[in-house]
């Protein structure tokens, strides 16, 4: 139904490259600044949203011992599609299931183990401006804020490439020069019609970036 584009201006980058955020501004303050900008633009706040992602690693002994690179399964939820649950392999297929898929995963404990403490989620406000939907979220992992996600949808258009220029222009209006290049999903299906799982693939990429970004040694898998 919707065309989604998602990108991730890492907070630090935001600080040094473009918007002259004063030293020591927190993620929260930057989000508030972006919220303000959107509201000045005329966007209307319409409640909140969340996207979360749980990581499971395929714990089957055969795979673990065979020396292959370990495979991860990500189970994601999106408040925009409350009656669905998305299961994705990295660079692999995306499965859209009913919400009780979570219960199934518990039953499959012996094959897929939940990597506790690796849950990433993005929560924030949802804005509407004309036919645009903007979701401004704070990405948190564990209890710490790791970055900001900005999701922009242009609802009337279902073909991603068609509206790219239009979206660029819109994003420039509130993000000035942070606007990134076209997301990889566009390339995969250039003529394809948007589906909600495209959004989830983009969020997964984003969350994986967040995980890699954390340099501190932790209990996480990478």
């Amino acid at each position: 139904m919707l065309l989604t584009f998602l990108f991730f201006p890492i907070f630090k980058w935001l600080q040094c490259v473009t918007v002259p955020v004063a030293e020591g501004k927190s993620v929260q303050q930057t989000v508030e600044m972006l919220n303000k900008k959107l509201e000045q633009l005329g966007a209307v706040k319409q409640g909140n949203f969340y996207v979360d992602c749980e990581t499971y690693h395929a714990g089957a002994p055969a795979i673990a011992n065979s020396g292959q690179s370990q495979k991860f399964l990500y189970v994601m939820h999106n408040s925009e599609a409350p009656l669905s649950c998305f299961a994705l392999f990295e660079n692999g297929p995306c499965l859209v299931a009913d919400p009780n898929f979570d219960v199934l995963m518990v039953k499959l404990k012996s094959y897929f183990q939940n990597a506790k403490g690796n849950k990433v989620e993005s929560r924030g406000a949802r804005y509407q401006y004309c036919d645009f939907l903007v979701k401004l979220g704070t990405i948190t992992m564990g209890s710490s804020a790791r970055g900001i996600s900005v999701e922009v949808e242009y609802c009337p258009c279902i073909v991603a490439n068609d509206s790219w220029n239009l979206m660029m222009e819109f994003m420039q209006s509130f993000l000035s020069s942070h606007v990134p290049g076209a997301p990889a999903v566009f390339g995969v299906k250039p003529d394809g019609i948007y589906s909600p799982s495209d959004t989830m693939v983009q969020y997964l990429e984003l969350f994986n970036k967040v995980r890699k970004q954390q340099a501190t040694p932790s209990t996480g898998m990478r």
Partner: peptide, 18 residues
């Protein structure tokens, strides 16, 4: 509709509309 810029102002959006 979503790909053509305005022939006068050269922009894509005006008040949120193409």
């Amino acid at each position: 509709l979503f790909q053509a810029p305005c022939q006068r102002c050269g922009k894509y959006l005006q008040d949120g509309l193409p």
